[in-house]
Each structure stands twice: as C-alpha cells, then as structure tokens.
Nucleic acid binder design. Structure first.
Lengths: 236, 236
DNA sequence: CGGCAATTTGATATCCATCAATCGGTGTGG
DNA sequence: CCACACCGATTGATGGATATCAAATTGCCG
C-alpha cells in the first residue's frame, strides 16, 4: 500500500538510477492477480489503489502521492490494482532487489518495517471512518487528509501557512465516493453541506478552500492528521 | 493488530517462558494512549482490538484469537485499546526484547514482516466490507471469518470437516455491530435474514450452523477466507 | 420462582442510494 | 466567434436500507 517517505527511509536507495515509467490518467500500473515482482516509488502525480469485487463494486483503499512506496504484498501476487489519477511518473525496482537490500541491511529493514506500520495506522483511520462516521464527517476527514498530504509533499512545517488555504482535489467525485464508501451524488451533497455550514468554499470542482479548520477538525473527530504526534512521526 | 501464528514464526520464541496474564471478560489489556512497551501473544480466549472516538463511537478493528500477536505499533504509544471478550490468557514480553531479537536475527525479522503483511491484507478485507457490502453480506463474511479462525486454531485441513458445521460466536451482538459498522438490532435482523434464506440456523445466540456454505461464500464475494491462496499462506 | 441482561422483534425516522433532469465547463466544427 | 455536443458535477424527487426508540422475549443466575 503506501506511505510517507521519511527523508531518511534508507531502503529507498534501491530506486537510485532505476527505470522510470510515465502514466497517463486512468492508466493501470498494477493489475490485481499479477505476479508481485516489482515495487514502485512515486516521483510525481497521484495514484489510486483499489480492489474490485466480482460484481463490479470497487473500494478505493488508498490514494498515493509523491514519495509513496507501492507494491507491498504478503504473497507472490498483487491482491489490489493501482492506477493513475493524474499524469504520474514512477520509479520501478524488482522486488528481488528490494528483498536482498532488506536482508543485507538491518537498518533498511527497520525503516521498511516502520513504513509498513505507518501504512497500517493510516488504514485503521479509514476503517474507523467507514464504520462510524457519517457522509459529511467522512468528507471532512478526507479534505484534511488531502491537506495533510499537500503539507507533507511540500514539506510545510507551519500549519497556518497561506499555501494551505486552498486544497487541490485531483480525483473525480466517483473516485472519492469509492474511497469513502458513498455514491458520487452523496459526495456532491456533502460538499454542499460543508459549504453551507461555512466550513469550506468550492472555488471550482477540484479546488476547495478550508475556511474553518477548527470546526472541520472537530467534525472529523479523532482523525486529525495535524495532531502533533502524527506529524512528528511523519516529518521526522 | 493481529494475525496467525505460522507454526514456524520464529520470532515468537521471545515468549518462551515469559510471564502470563489471565483476563476476565471485559478486562482491558491495553488502554489507548499508554506507552507501547509490551507485546503479547494469546494463549487462549478471544480478545477485541478497538478504537474509540471522542464522542463515544467505537469501532472494533479486529477480533484476536489463539496464537495471535498483539501490540504492533509504529510509535511509542498504543493508538488502540484491547480487551478480553471471553476469559483469556496471554503471554507478555517487553517490546525491547522483541526488538532486540528482530535486530539480531534476519530470519525472525522476515517472519515478523510477513505477519504484518498478513495483518494488512486482512484489514483491507475489512475496508472493502465496510465500504461496499450490505448488512447481511457483512454478516456472511463475518461468519465465514469465524469459521476460518476455528479452522486455523484447530488446524483442520479438511474444509468439510464435521466439527466445522457449527460455529461459535463468542462475542455479543453489540461487539459484532461495532466491528461490522452496524447497530446491534441490525445485526439481529441480518441473522434472521440469513436464517430465513436457509443459509444458517441459530442453535442459540452464540452458536450458528452454516447450512449452505456455497451460497454464503457467494454472498460474501471476494473475501472467501477458505480460498486456496489464503489458506496456503496461513497454514504453511 | 424472580429478576436482570442480552437478544429479538416491532414501529417509525433518518440517511443515503437511486433515478432523472439540469447545469457548467471544454473542445470541436461550422 | 458562436453553436453544439459531451462529460462530469450538481440538484431534485423518490425509494430503500439501516438507525432509533420502544416493547416483548429469551436465557441465565441467584
């Protein structure tokens, strides 16, 4: 799945000088069921990791941003698919090379394990959202999540930095819906609810200004991505 | 988080001769926010790992069974709580001891990493359930999940073994509801739906006979815990 | 037998999904 | 430059699934 690159996640040096691959929006990087013989790191763009049921229902498990690692798998086949949301560039490395690197270097393995743990924690947030939150609470969490990633990929330490005023929403309503366990119409309506409550303002359908961070955070509940503990472990 | 113990998950030897702790139903083993300085392995009983929101909503993230490992954390504080569902006995080990063991022995670290991956895959099943499935589909998945665990803890290779005819449901309706993202009344009604459809029969409120495995599996969709690939990696 | 807690069932309310129409950009061709 | 078509987003009207509130039932323990 995916996570932050800590600037000092040493195992990432396996991507040094590796081949890159360019992806157009909608292009599939990983097909579920394929042999899991490659791992990737995102250089630019936004990707989406999802799982599809036999009847066509789709659950987006995670959005992936710059410096996210992709390709974790317990088995020898991917059990999820990954596709590009925006134009994107990824670096490719054979899984075997990563494994050898991890086996040889305890520090690399430790860093890798830590990354996996962070992925796990993030997913538990998602579980809480899907199980317990209402539609507009989920959207509030999602917007804070996008802001959080903007902050990390731009390495902005200041929580009140002006460039964080507007958040880019690169994915479409349907992708958001499949991530939040809703339908696209409900996502639209939830945007409107947040806007009418004065929490956000839609500049256009892919840009949102967060007008009332404290109330958004209150709506989102425990999953405040800007909480000191989480940022500390992410920006370390 | 939790997972199977593969019989050969070597890192588990840190629990050899370690202290044990007995838990009564409802007793809390881990309080969210506490320093994460211990790890546990379950010798008997069923536990429940959950997260509570500021307003009291609770999401059960996982049920934990015999030989499950408990205490994974990316940071130095637990971000979830764990309590006993049934009377239970756990073995306790200082986190430091485990870490030293993992640092010293690459094979142990590899086994540990594999366990964490399996936990991750399991959680992604949960995400799909919460995001995409209806109430009775979730319950069908849950019953297959309990059967799966019975099979693993009793190491029953035969999928049609008679002792798998009836499944024990050790937890109460409210705990199930908080795991499936439903209310307890809805869990009751979903039991009735499955029963009226001839898929199950409630022997009593904590025992269910699975009468039509094929149709239950179809209802559950992709998350068939008995799929050959999953069992292979679990029973290896 | 009596009482308490968990479960089940029933009646109603709420939220989200569904179905359908409209709006708003964007690109194309006249 | 404007008319038109297309696609995603929004809005509206309605339906359905689950939540909520309340009562009845079951099982369990003293």
């Amino acid at each position: 799945m995916a996570d932050l690159r800590l600037p000092n996640d040493v195992f990432l040096d396996v991507f040094r000088g590796a081949a890159t691959r360019e992806l157009a929006p909608g292009e599939v990087l990983i097909h579920a069921g394929q042999p899991a013989d490659q791992v990737f790191n995102i250089e630019s763009g936004v990707l989406m990791l999802y799982r599809t049921g036999t009847d066509g229902r789709r659950q987006v498990l995670s959005f992936l941003f710059r410096d996210n690692f992709v390709g974790l798998s317990a088995t020898d086949a991917y059990f999820f698919s990954v596709e590009a949301v925006t134009p994107a560039r990824v670096v490719v490395c054979p899984r075997r090379v990563l494994n050898e690197r991890l086996a040889r270097d305890p520090a690399a393995e430790q860093a890798f394990l830590n990354m996996v743990f962070r992925v796990l924690e993030d997913i538990l947030d998602v579980v809480y959202s899907l199980g317990q939150r209402t539609a507009s609470e989920r959207l509030a969490v999602f917007l804070l999540y996008l802001r959080h990633w903007k902050r990390l990929t731009d390495t902005i330490a200041d929580d009140a930095h002006p460039s964080l005023g507007a958040v880019q929403v690169p994915m479409g309503r349907e992708d958001i819906a499949d991530f939040l366990g809703l339908k696209k119409e409900t996502v639209s309506r939830s945007f409107r609810e947040l806007e009418q409550a004065g929490l956000i303002h839609r500049l256009d359908s892919h840009t949102v200004r967060l007008d009332d961070l404290p109330r958004l955070r209150q709506l989102a509940g425990i999953s405040d991505f800007a909480s000191p503990r989480r940022l500390a472990s992410a920006l370390r």
